[in-house]
């Protein structure tokens, strides 16, 4: 593993020797990038975990309530299960949007440090 990395670093497109990891890690812009990521990932993960597990919990423990028909013969249980697909797609879409910003920020950090 270490050998492979050393080999890569010596290839012509990657002229500089081993990057100064500590310098990048200490850079304020890099710390802000990490904080931004956590600010999105932690609440988003907590949200989808709660939203998802609400399904087996509600359907399993409150089947009568979830069997209530709300739209023709469509009941809460089916609509809530279906909504999970859209929840997942919407969160993935949001992630792609914020991740584009992170890409720009991370490119900026590397550029500033001459990488």
């Amino acid at each position: 593993m270490r050998l492979a990395i050393a080999r890569d670093m010596s290839s012509p497109d990657n002229a500089p020797a081993a990057p100064d990891w500590d310098a990048i890690a200490r850079d304020p812009a890099f710390r802000i990038l990490l904080a931004d990521k956590i600010k999105f990932l932690v609440p988003a993960t907590i949200f989808f975990v709660i939203y998802y597990f609400a399904l087996p919990v509600l359907v399993g423990f409150y089947p009568e309530f979830m069997s209530r028909e709300v739209f023709g013969s469509l009941n809460l249980a089916y609509l809530f299960a279906l909504s999970q697909f859209f929840m997942a797609w919407i969160l993935a879409g949001l992630y792609v949007v914020v991740a584009r910003r992170w890409d720009r920020d991370s490119d900026a950090v590397l550029k500033k440090l001459g990488r």
């Binding site: 988003a44 993960t45 989808f48 998802y52 399904l55």
Partner: peptide, 21 residues
């Protein structure tokens, strides 16, 4: 019926973990 459909939901939601983490 329905229980089978509920079972299938987790297979997609799982990819949020893959994507995020």
């Amino acid at each position: 019926g329905y229980d089978g459909f509920m079972y299938s939901v987790g297979f997609l939601v799982a990819y949020l973990t893959v994507l995020f983490i």
